[in-house]
Design a protein around this nucleic acid. Structure first.
Lengths: 248, 248
DNA sequence: CGGTTGCTTGAGATCCATCAATAGGAGTGG
DNA sequence: CCACTCCTATTGATGGATCTCAAGCAACCG
C-alpha cells in the first residue's frame, strides 16, 4: 500500500485531488532495504527524508554501556523526520525492522509541496504534531507507567496507528517486533516482556504467535493501560501558520 | 533578559539586524503568571504559542493513577510549541515552575515572520529540531539509564541549555526544581532523588542549596552520565526546506 | 543435520518504591 | 513576635518490581 501516507494525511487535512497528486509524486525515489539493515546511522549527514511505504522501521540509540533504546517505531505512512529541516547530522540511527521500502524524499521537494498548498502544509504539520505527541506519550510511559501498563499501552497505540492507515484486521495486526525489541522500546528486559506477554495471554486479552497479534478485548486492554487515543489528534481541527491561512 | 530567544536562535542561523528586529517584535503580548500556576491545561484549545522570556515552565501530564510525569522543562528563550501549527487541544498541561513572564505569540505572526526571512525560518526549524532532540534524549534516559545517570545527565543538559542563553555563572546556575519535581521529571520517587543528590554531594561533584546548583566537576559529571552535548546541534549547519533556500 | 535466533522458565540479586517519622523554613494571622 | 501550618528535605526500614544469570527448547535455515 504505497498510499498509506495519503491515508494518514487525510486525517490531518482535507486534501484536493491536486494535493493528493502532488503528494503522490513526492514519494520518490523509492528504495528498499533488508530486514535489520540500517537506513541511516547516528552521526551521518542525512540527505533526504525517509517516508515508510511498506514494512516497519525504528529509530534507536546505542548507549556507551552497551544498552539500546528504541525511540520510535515507524509504520507505513510515517515520515521519519520533521518535513521542514534536515539536521547537520543525526543524533540517532534509523533501521529496518522488516524488509522496508521507503521513499527518499528530497527536502526541496517537500518544501515546495508545502508551499504550493495550504492543505498539504496543514497535513504535514499535523503529521509532525502526531509524531511528537507519540514520542511524548512514550516519555509518560517510561517514566510513570508500570511495565504491564506500558506494554498494553504500546499494543493499543500500535493498533490505533495501524488502523489509521488500514493495516489492521479488526482487532488483529502483524507485530514484527521480537521480545528483545519490545524490551528495548519499553525500557524492559526481554525476559520480563516475555512474562508480561504470558500474563496478557493467560488473562485472555491477546494472542501472539508468529508475529501475528490478536487483541481479544480491546476495551479491557485500553482500561488496563489507561489508553486514550485522543492524543493522536484524530479529529482534525489544528490550525497552521503562514500566508494568512486560517482554519478551514 | 528578554533577548534569550534571540541569543538562542542565533545558534540556529545567522540573523540579520532586520531578522532580529522582526523576532523582537514577535514577542508580544507579554504575560505574567505566578509560580505553580497553570499557563495552559490539558484538553484546552491553545490560542497562541508561549515563548518563555523569564522564569522556568514545564510541560506535564497527570495520569489516572494519580502520578505525574513532567515531559519537558522550558527555560528562557524556549518556544513551548512547534511554531507552525496549533493543535485543536493540548494533550498535556503547561505550568510555571517559578514566576514566569512569557510572550503569547500569535500563530499568524510567527508564520509571517517565518515566511519573511529564510534565516528566521531556518532558526525556528532549528529550534524545533533541538526541542524534539531533547525530548528524545529524555526517552533514552528514562528507558535505559540508571537513576544516577539520569540525574547527572539532566544536570548537564540544563547546564548546556542555560549556557546557550547566558544563564549560567561558570559551572553554577539556578535550579528551581524541588526534589519532587525532579522525581516527576526523571521517573523516580523524590526519596530516591534525595539520596542520589546526596551521593553527588558526597562525591564532591555538586553543591545544591536553596535552589542554587554548583557543579564542581563538570567533566566528571559528563563522564558519569555519558553526556555528550552534540545532540543539541550547537554547530549550525542544518538545512531547511522551501522557496529554493539552500544551506548558507 | 548443526547452527543460529528467539522464546520460555527458574532462582537469586538489586535497584528503587513505598511507608513512616522527624526536622527545617517560609509564610500567615493573631 | 509567637503559634500554626504547609511544604520540602531528610533518614530508616521494608517490600516489591524488575534485572541478571543460566539453562533448556522450539523453529528456522543453509
Amino acid at each position: 500500500m504505497d498510499d498509506a501516507f495519503l491515508r494518514k494525511l487525510r486525517h490531518g487535512a482535507g486534501l484536493t485531488d491536486e494535493d493528493e497528486r502532488v503528494l503522490q509524486d513526492l514519494a520518490k525515489p523509492v528504495r528498499t532495504v533488508n530486514a535489520h539493515a540500517d537506513i541511516a546511522i547516528e552521526g551521518s549527514e542525512p540527505h533526504h527524508l525517509p517516508l515508510i511505504l511498506e514494512g516497519w522501521a525504528y529509530r534507536y540509540k546505542l548507549l556507551d554501556n552497551g544498552k539500546r533504546q528504541i525511540i520510535s517505531v515507524f509504520v507505513p505512512g510515517d515520515l521519519c523526520q520533521p518535513f521542514g529541516v534536515v539536521p547537520q547530522f543525526l543524533d540517532y540511527s534509523l533501521a529496518a525492522l522488516t524488509p522496508v521500502t521507503f521513499a527518499a524524499i528530497k527536502l526541496n521537494a517537500i518544501g515546495a509541496a508545502a508551499t504550493s498548498s495550504p492543505h498539504i502544509r496543514k497535513a504535514l504539520w499535523w503529521d509532525l504534531l502526531v509524531t511528537s505527541t507519540v514520542e511524548r506519550e512514550r516519555i509518560v510511559s517510561l517514566g510513570r507507567r508500570t511495565a504491564s501498563e506500558r506494554l498494553a499501552h504500546l499494543l493499543c497505540e500500535l493498533w490505533a496507528r495501524l488502523n489509521l492507515v488500514g493495516l489492521t484486521d479488526n482487532a488483529a495486526y502483524d507485530l514484527p517486533l521480537t521480545q528483545i525489541e519490545l524490551g528495548d522500546l519499553l525500557g524492559l528486559s526481554s525476559v520480563h516482556v516475555n512474562r508480561l506477554l504470558q500474563e496478557l495471554r493467560k488473562a485472555g486479552l491477546i494472542s501472539l504467535r508468529g508475529r501475528r497479534l490478536v487483541i481479544h478485548d480491546l476495551k479491557e486492554m485500553r482500561e488496563l493501560s489507561f489508553f486514550d487515543d485522543s492524543y493522536l489528534q484524530l479529529q482534525d481541527h489544528s490550525r497552521i501558520a503562514g500566508s494568512g491561512f486560517r482554519r478551514q
